[in-house]
């Protein structure tokens, strides 16, 4: 039997869903508040710079980007089926899961070459 990618894609979907449930609304509320809270962008830049010095902070930031990417890619991919939008599996799967993987890799590159 051909091996299914479902355990991997569902694990990433589940992890992203859990992360979005636990910090998603709080994160979005925080960036909405930034405009009123930040009077000096340079000071915020310095604060974030020192925070991102630690590799664990970079790893956590990568998780906050990559896991929601896989979560939303999974839901949109299966949403196409619900809407009766058909296409070759390799193309649609490649677009959603491949896109999430490519953007996660780019994010890792940007974070770890800071």
């Amino acid at each position: 039997m051909r091996r299914s990618h479902e355990p991997i894609s569902w694990s990433l979907f589940g992890a992203g869903g859990m992360l979005l449930a636990f910090i998603g609304p709080g994160l979005i509320a925080s960036t909405l508040l930034l405009g009123w809270l930040v009077q000096d962008p340079q000071a915020l830049y310095a604060t974030l710079s020192s925070g991102l010095q630690h590799p664990l902070t970079r790893l956590a930031t990568l998780a906050v980007i990559a896991l929601p990417l896989y979560h939303t890619a999974h839901r949109l991919y299966h949403g196409l089926h619900d809407l009766h939008i058909k296409g070759p599996t390799w193309l649609l799967g490649g677009f959603f899961y491949g896109g999430a993987t490519a953007l996660s890799a780019l994010c890792a590159f940007w974070l770890f070459t800071l």
Binding site: F22, I23, G24, P25, G26, L27, A29, S30, L33, L34, L37, V38, L44, T47
Partner: peptide
């Protein structure tokens, strides 16, 4: 998680 994150943002900024 969510209230803590908003609280931390307010406290920091």
């Amino acid at each position: 998680g969510n209230l803590g994150l908003v609280g931390a943002t307010l406290w920091l900024l």
